[in-house]
Design a protein around this nucleic acid. Structure first.
Lengths: 196, 196
DNA sequence: TGGATGGCGTACCAGATGGTACGGCTCGAA
DNA sequence: TTCGAGCCGTACCATCTGGTACGCCATCCA
């Protein structure tokens, strides 16, 4: 199997895993069922991913990559800080309330090993983007984002509120993510602006 | 079996369920293992709780009751608003980051039915306390908590940030809950005070 | 064009699971 | 003191699980 074909096959297997998790949950996504869904052999799954946990880990890592590549463009655009923050917040909210992220987080919450992996992947992929942008704002002088980790925590808190937990519990509230991000941004700036 | 004995027995079974969930997780807490741990018969478990989901549901409901009775006193104390809010926030944070709540939330996130139950129990038990207090503040005039649900959402967001998700992922950060609650209260008041 | 690498499908294994059935015994009620 | 409700312990059932083994066949490389 050529390398590009192998990558595509791997992707297809992870897609099948994701779909099955979405439809049947953790319990329903057995290695048997995944293999059948992907029209792959169980032996192939084990050869490629080691074991069930390894398969799920691969899914989490792939998702983290896609999150980063979705979020990165939102934060480089040169525009008014509140617009950049709103754009970033909207993208982050769309991601974290989306079906894929909910599924990934459910997985990670059910298994401590996967939880550690997701937490690390999240800390590495999304937080630095926000941290860099906020510290740039601070350097420009209009905003005093210090201490930086508190500023980040406050922004994320204002942005997400209880929405993410609600989504994980399967009781999603209808939410206009753009309006929510705009509101969070406006409040955060009120807290951190140098001239109130 | 006398009624009081029966209540105690039921409590002991739920305790055993909680302990086993804590030690062995969802997978390890089989009906067999729970029965053995509680020195009860599987048949009794099924007779009293219907099935596995029913057992877990009973655990969730018992926890919700205890949460409410822990939180209610924090909010009736007549004191400065920021002190009441800080006290309430500390208690809520201690609860939601504690081992029991983490366990309960993991359970509810793994099973949609339990998720709906927990979300409803939470909405019924903890939110009204905060809602009533904030609207009293609003009535007194020093604070403009309107719209009320946004004010609540902002307070909870500032209070919890990403802490609850981190705890659920099994990557808890050391946190001084009282200081965190004080910080959240101070920021929230800055956002909602009538005279900035 | 030939041979070998490796994925597919199926079968197999031991163990565990949720749920039910059934003696035997304790303990509360009359 | 007697009797019956009901809990404990164990056994049982069909089913499913993660993980391994093994022919068979397509595809890629030389």
């Amino acid at each position: 199997m050529r390398d590009d074909q192998k990558d595509a096959r791997r992707d297809a297997i992870l897609d099948a895993t994701r779909d099955l998790l979405r439809e049947a949950g953790w319990r329903g996504a057995s290695m048997r069922a995944i293999a059948a869904r992907a029209q792959a052999s169980k032996e192939t799954l084990y050869a490629w991913f080691g074991n069930r946990e390894g398969l799920f880990e691969a899914l989490i890592r792939r998702n983290a990559l896609s999150v980063q590549s979705t979020l990165a463009p939102a934060v480089v655009a040169k525009a008014a800080p509140e617009d950049v923050l709103t754009r970033f917040g909207t993208a982050l909210l769309d991601l974290q309330l989306g079906a894929d992220a909910v599924l990934i987080n459910r997985l990670a919450i059910a298994d401590p090993v996967l939880g550690a992996i997701l937490a690390e992947a999240g800390r590495e992929s999304t937080l630095p983007l926000l941290a860099r942008f906020l510290s740039e704002l601070d350097a420009e002088g209009a905003i005093r984002a210090d201490p930086l980790d508190e500023a980040i925590e406050d922004y994320l808190g204002l942005l997400k509120g209880d929405l993410q937990i609600a989504a994980l519990l399967g009781v999603p509230r209808a939410v206009d993510t753009r309006a929510q991000a705009r509101r969070a941004t406006e409040r955060w700036i009120r807290l951190y602006a140098v001239n109130p």
